[in-house]
Design a protein around this nucleic acid. Structure first.
Lengths: 217, 217
DNA sequence: GCGCTGAATGATTTATTGAAGATTCACTCG
DNA sequence: CGAGTGAATCTTCAATAAATCATTCAGCGC
């Protein structure tokens, strides 16, 4: 938990401050070392390199998200469908906020994800595990009839990809994203036979045409 | 249709050859002009700039795709569900092939999409229009019961985003993409109540764990 | 040996500048 | 005029040099 008691934790704390304040690229190993009152060389006794420090910080952030999502999942008195909905909305909200309000955090996440592809995959896998739990519970309560829970979790992840790193996949404002996640979720839960994508959440009137999506590639 | 008869068409033909062969960046306006036996300045009587030439070429390609998709939609003796499936698979295949087998085309598409965000949106809108047709037909045959066809098409597009510019959103090989599209489609059509994401298409055995997705950001 | 230092090394980034290329425009020809 | 030219301009790119920085390692005190 980025504990200041250990040398390693100390380094992570110092690096995090710098990365968040000045950005990953603009932070030098010498600065981090200096903040910890040590020499640059000594950092390498605790981390293989700069990127690994960033990865450790991101892992920490990822675990925090997972913990938050676990909380959301534990909310009592909800059906499996509601739980799935809570989960996906909370997930979107968490990453959206993390990335939206801090350019520097966004930069760090992008660097780590692109240089260490396995990192993003680990996070996705953890996420999928939680989703599987929800689906299994839904099976147990006869609310769902899902043969392969793990596979289905994977498919839900594929279908909600747009909402997972919202800022990377579209330039939509948050309320538009909510509206879409709601619509997609309705389809996933009920299929096309059942009234199509009913709009359960009322966000703004019409006006918002799909045409102003503004994808950036 | 990139017709050689008009000056404009001539320019487009010449530019397309160069762009596809040498790439957008490596092609100069002087070269295009020279291929058309005219001076560079004269190109500007027909196009506002280099990017507009590329956009025109991409628009052409987009319209070709739309035409192909229309053909697929017209296949006789298919249910609305089957038609929707045909459509989405054909769409994925078309863009996948277009981008996979030609680095230069990929470059051109990326440049145009990023410099002219509205371009990608126009293509998406056309696509959505076709999907709406399928959904409406499904309503007419009582196969679907969809209140707002346009909205639902939008949601399907959101849920299948991962498969629309496959190479941009994941590094999955084509058979993995097919497997996922199949799973997502099953969810969209039938919802979670119905056996979850059944695997209707058998692509390879297990082995393929979701963990080797390798997203690149 | 263990924890650490800090100068040495080599890679990467940044600045600079000359060349190349996109775009413009005053002008020509029919 | 309408179609087209090509030199002039202004932007962008590429190559090089300079500086910075990540990483290494020989060595120091405990």
């Amino acid at each position: 938990m980025l504990c200041k008691d250990t040398v390693r934790g100390n380094i992570l704390e110092a690096a995090k401050k710098r990365f968040v304040h000045y950005g990953y690229a603009k932070t030098t190993m010498a600065e981090i070392a200096s903040d910890c009152s040590m020499s640059p060389g000594n950092l390498y006794r605790y981390f293989p390199g700069k990127l690994d420090i960033a990865e450790a910080i991101c892992t920490e952030a990822g675990e925090y998200s997972i913990a938050k999502l676990r909380e959301v999942m534990r909310r009592p008195g909800r059906t499996a469908k509601e739980r799935l909905r809570d989960f996906l909305f909370a997930d979107m909200r968490l990453t959206y906020d993390q990335l939206e309000f801090d350019k520097q955090v966004f930069e760090m996440a992008r660097v780590v994800s692109s240089e260490r592809p396995q990192f993003a995959n680990r996070i996705l896998a953890l996420n999928r595990a939680l989703m599987s739990e929800i689906l299994s519970a839904g099976n147990a309560s006869t609310e769902f009839v899902i043969e392969d829970v793990v596979f289905t979790a994977e498919m839900i992840q594929a279908a909600t990809m747009k909402f997972r790193y919202p800022q990377l996949h579209s330039k939509l404002p948050y309320d538009r994203l909510e509206r879409e996640l709601d619509g997609v979720l309705h389809l996933l839960l009920n299929g096309l036979d059942d009234g199509g994508a009913g709009r359960e959440v009322q966000v703004k009137p019409v006006h918002q045409s799909a045409s102003d999506e503004l994808i950036s590639i």
